[in-house]
Design a protein around this nucleic acid. Structure first.
Lengths: 136, 136
DNA sequence: TAACTAAACAATAAAAATTATTATTTAAGT
DNA sequence: ACTTAAATAATAATTTTTATTGTTTAGTTA
């Protein structure tokens, strides 16, 4: 995926900070603003938390990013990909993707409701295999 | 649904505040903490915002409530019912329920992933019919 | 490549949202 | 009614998020 083109397509200037934000989110898979800020500071010691918030929110609104909420954990962001399912562990907070097509679900919901849909967030909560063992 | 029994089942005392919180959320369908607080103050002039936060979070963690995030809007809470689909309008922030069964989806995700799932949040974002007209 | 312009940046301050603390009150079981 | 553990209100503190302002930078134009 070409982030430069994607930013330009949304009339956002291609800055080193924005590129780094996107690259770090991609590398992490799923990450919250705080943690992202900590990582970015390694390469951009002067970056400000407000910049991270501003850009992440901006990209979220433009749907370059999407957000996943897990109880007791901060909002986690990821790069928007094809609609898919998130498996979230309530115990350790980890999020896993399942590349299963939910296009049919979206299509039927759209036609039944009259909504025009453009985006989906499917989060299934539970315990990951590893946390199941711990609590057993 | 009997809220008294539900609270007791989770070892939460049945207080007028808790009952009112549950009843108001049910009445509203979907509501954020701030708005809920404003409504509760009508009947409980002395209730504190912290009490609302504490109880809503508590009930959320116990899955008596669930939360829906819409961009640019605060977290909205609703009474946990059968797993269903939320349609959320990015423009006006309204949330609508669709009583469509997603049990199959959950079952297949569970068996494929090894996760033990107990809860689901499916949010499909877009524009509601009314906001489509406005922007057209 | 030098200069221009609009936008992004860092730093700071401010505002908003959330959580913690403590003394008082209340629910529910004896 | 009495007792005890828990919930509440009030307040303070913390955390998260947003706004502001002056400076810097990206991307364009000449």
């Amino acid at each position: 995926m070409n982030y430069i083109e994607q930013l330009k397509a949304h009339a956002l200037k291609v800055t080193p900070q924005r590129m780094a934000i996107l690259e770090e989110i991609e590398a992490a898979g799923h990450i919250d603003v705080d943690h992202l800020y900590e990582i970015l500071r390694m390469n951009f010691p002067s970056i400000s938390l407000a910049t991270v918030y501003k850009n992440v929110n901006q990209m979220y609104e433009l749907q370059i990013l999407e957000a996943i909420k897990v109880p007791n954990h901060k909002l986690q962001y990821e790069i928007t990909k094809a609609p898919h399912i998130h498996l979230a562990c309530d115990s350790c907070g980890s999020v896993m993707d399942m590349q299963q097509c939910i296009g049919e679900l979206i299509d039927s919901a759209e036609s039944e409701s009259g909504y025009r849909l453009n985006h989906s967030t499917v989060v299934l909560n539970g315990l990951c295999p590893s946390c199941q063992k711990k609590s057993a």
